[in-house]
Design a protein around this nucleic acid. Structure first.
Length: 279
DNA sequence: CATTACCTGCAA
DNA sequence: TTGCAGGTAATG
């Protein structure tokens, strides 16, 4: 579920409640496959006593930088949620990881679909995670020219290209569809076929769409909640996502849905015309 | 590039 | 009952 804006919102909301706390212990872990590294006994042993320096985000990973060079990295995949509460939510069958903090609160991860993942990384592991992802689209260093270079380098259609975390970090199905609509580009356009002007439109669209979503604390379709449990409101600003049959906000043409790269894809057939090099 | 797998809940 | 879902990795 959570894409860049949702994870960013969670990281910001979590910060005041975990920064400068210490982890007393892992008090609950009932889905060991969630822990990718190190093996769960070491994961729990190494987390105990760690100091939490703050919160951060890389791509769709929620990061808790700890002391001694460690970082706790959490990926919420489709249905994961994290929060801090006074009482451990141990009666909930979907809460799979609970950390006790030194002020008596608990940091928990809940995930009905069990796709979420946790890693405890040393500096080298964190560097690897970083290197496995493309540039952050909201980083000032991500210029129009950076995007142009990415598009030139990959012979792929726009939709799968933008979903690929190794190419550009943090976009998922929602924000790819929304960005392509704002840029007036068909999801199946070949990446290397974009003109300079189209590339500039895509660059501006991606940043606009992500920034606005963060301002609205993310998009809640079903599972996503902020770290305090509230819904995001960005879903009210979708132009195309899950709006098939409804009028395009720009031209009134009914939004269409098709499958591209195995993903439901929403677009306006008039504003985002197919080109000769799309099919 | 496409398909499958990982899981569960929910709507059709 | 079937199909679908915001993500990703592994496999033909």
């Amino acid at each position: 579920m959570p894409e860049l804006p949702e994870v960013e919102t969670i990281a910001r909301g979590l910060a005041p409640r975990v920064t400068d706390r210490s982890i007393v212990a892992v008090v609950h872990l009932d889905w060991e496959r969630m822990v990718e590294t190190p093996a769960p006994p070491d994961f729990s042993r190494l987390l105990a006593g760690r100091h939490i320096a703050g919160t951060a985000r890389r791509a769709k990973w929620l990061l808790l930088p700890l002391d001694a060079g460690w970082t706790l990295a959490l990926h919420l995949r489709m249905s994961g949620r994290v929060g801090v509460s006074d009482a451990p939510p141990l009666d909930d069958p979907h809460t799979h990881l609970v950390l006790a903090l030194d002020n008596g609160t608990t940091l928990w991860l809940r995930d009905p679909r069990k796709f979420g993942r946790a890693r405890l990384l040393d500096a080298a592991g964190m560097a690897q995670l970083d290197a496995a992802h493309g540039p952050e689209p909201l980083d000032p260093a991500f210029t129009n020219e950076c995007l142009a270079r990415l598009l030139r380098r990959h012979r792929q259609r726009l939709k799968p290209l933008l979903l690929n975390q190794r190419v550009i970090a943090g976009l998922g199905n929602i924000y790819v569809d929304e960005s392509l609509w704002h840029a007036r580009l068909h999801p199946q356009r070949a990446a290397e076929s974009l003109s300079a002007g189209e590339c500039a439109r895509l660059h501006a669209a991606i940043r606009h769409v992500l920034q606005r979503a963060i301002e609205h604390e993310g998009s809640t379709l079903r599972d996503y909640r902020t770290s305090s449990g509230s819904s995001g409101s960005n879903q009210h600003f979708f132009a195309v996502y899950q709006r098939s049959g409804q009028p395009c906000p720009a031209c009134g043409t009914p939004i269409e849905r098709m499958v591209v790269a195995q993903r439901g894809t929403h677009f306006c057939p008039r504003c985002q015309p197919a080109c000769s090099n799309t099919a």
